[in-house]
Design a protein around this nucleic acid. Structure first.
Lengths: 324, 324
DNA sequence: TTGAAAGCGCTAACAG
DNA sequence: CTGTTAGCGCTTTCAA
């Protein structure tokens, strides 16, 4: 592998001149010299060693994405866009799956993830304080809904989407609703439930039942089976599309049937799976590209990020499909 | 951040002694000295800088996963297991999404991915020769079905699963079948189609039609709409589950109905989505954990890998569900 | 066993 | 603008 030294020699310049010529920011180099260096680099097939660069500059070009595990359907669409955009701005994505790790801190400390330019925290195992302790970079972006005054974060604003969904229900004469939620341990989920209840109350819709799941398809199936058919309800609001899918499949099997007409079903996340003909579930979600842009904006200009608003929001909206 | 220097000073030993004491392989150090070093490291909360280590050892602990894009449903289950196992063996996964990159080579050269311990090629944009050119490591594992005598690879063996699926069809008196395939530009797909045709011929099942899709749900829908209802067929074999899902949704809407009874439907990939009640599609697939173990086995012991068989296989099998 | 010292490849002060 | 030089933090000879 050719080194910068080789390039410098071939171009007949000093090491530092070569370094400056190849630097991505404008450094003082005679135009003619720069040309010779670039030519030499090209001829040799030179490419800088990022490890050596990182050792000097403390920048690795790596961004860690910290998740519990992947396969949560709701994340997939997002990650593809996110990783693509990271690459656009010259960053590499490294995925850390905390689910299979005993101690997150020890694991991270030993790995290159400790030295990333930024860490994007999706895992709800990690709070803002821990996150700062877990990474050498002070550039941590909380995306799990947890945050404090020091941290940076991007968060969907659930209120508008929920408001729109409930308004849609009201417009269709819904009078009583069932709420199927996820883990109430999460602050985010608590807040979300509050939004639903407020919006429903505003339109005079009665919450007849509230059931708990864990966001998964299976838990949606379980919850739906608990709904007493004699206990009338006009609409079911789920805090994840996966649960709504489970609910839909159970309701289809029941003789009293469902949609459209008898009952309305609303999901959450706006998964691309809801485009499948068998799961035409009305949902609530945010624009993924918009969200990713917010994240990237915090990433590309750390200084700016520290001055501007630290907590960015992305509005959700209602996506109507057959079930709502 | 404490450095090795700090640890050495605190322990009252030389830099190199500290290095040896902390090394993961057995290096000659007096037992008592080692203890002091370890204690000092613990006290200081020391953790080695992987960049500096990498600069010396040329090992980064990073493994690149090269894909076209993520979101191909068939990969998701696999990646979760893969990333988890990589972490188990002390490697970090970095995902490179080629879809959004103009020149793969230039992109990789400039990034830390060029210096990874190993590269796992899922993207079918890259052949074995290019792969060797694209990474500094000679440790490239082809997982896209492309390979040559020099490369390492892991590949599902499609034959047994296809054989079993066709046998299942034959046992249920299937006499004519429709084949819905993906891009025939791929060698892998060509071979797969050959397996289907051979197996079908063996049982005297006639292939009445062959249609082309691109593995996606949408293309399955399109293909299914092209099937002439008057043109009788007992079974449809799709080379992806996503296409089979599209087919199923179209057939459901048709008055002549489908499954069970009239027609059998077989997918490919054994997606976890086929566990959804609405898509109970019989499929063909391999054991994901088994597959990942093969990959990891090539990874952990490079020397061994170079001696043993370079091309590892994982058998597929038939997974019966409602449609088959 | 041990420690001094020479790198690994690059960047950034610093003095011209 | 330029070249010299001192690191970045760690591993690994090499003599002792």
């Amino acid at each position: 592998m050719p080194t910068l030294q080789d390039v410098a020699e071939r171009a007949g310049v000093s090491l530092s001149a070569a370094s400056r010529a190849l630097s991505r920011d404008q450094k003082p180099v005679a135009a003619e010299k720069r040309e010779r260096v670039l030519a030499a680099a090209r001829a040799l097939g030179y490419s800088a060693n990022p490890l050596a660069q990182g050792l000097s500059t403390r920048q690795t070009g790596l961004v860690s994405i910290i998740v519990n595990h992947i396969g949560d359907l709701s994340d997939l669409d997002l990650f593809d866009i996110l990783i693509g955009r990271l690459q656009d701005v010259g960053k590499q994505a490294s995925i850390v799956r905390l689910g299979s790790v005993k101690s997150a801190r020890d694991f991270l400390r030993g790995s290159i993830s400790y030295h990333v330019d930024a860490a994007l925290i999706f895992s709800d195992f990690i709070g803002p304080r821990q996150a700062r302790d877990f990474f050498r970079t002070n550039h941590v972006i909380m995306l799990n809904g947890r945050q404090d005054s020091q941290s940076l974060s991007v968060q969907p604003d659930d209120a508008p989407g929920i408001q729109q969904a409930v308004e849609n229900a009201a417009r269709h004469q819904v009078e009583t609703a069932t709420l199927i939620t996820g883990r109430e341990s999460s602050e985010l989920e608590k807040q979300r439930i509050a939004f639903y209840r407020t919006a429903l109350a505003r339109y005079g819709i009665l919450v007849s039942t509230q059931l708990h799941g864990d966001y998964s398809y299976a838990s949606g199936v379980t919850a739906a089976r608990q709904i007493d058919p004699r206990h009338y309800t006009d609409a079911i609001f789920c805090t994840s599309d996966a649960m709504a899918m489970g609910v839909l499949d159970v309701l289809r099997d029941r003789e009293d049937g469902i949609i459209p007409g008898r009952m309305r079903l609303y999901g959450f996340d706006n998964l691309s799976l809801t485009d499948l003909h068998s799961y035409p579930i009305s949902s609530i979600g945010f624009d993924k590209r918009d969200y990713v842009e917010q994240v990237v904006s915090l990433l590309v200009d750390p200084a700016q990020a520290r001055k501007g608003p630290r907590h960015l929001g992305v509005p959700t909206r209602f996506y109507g499909r057959q079930t709502g």
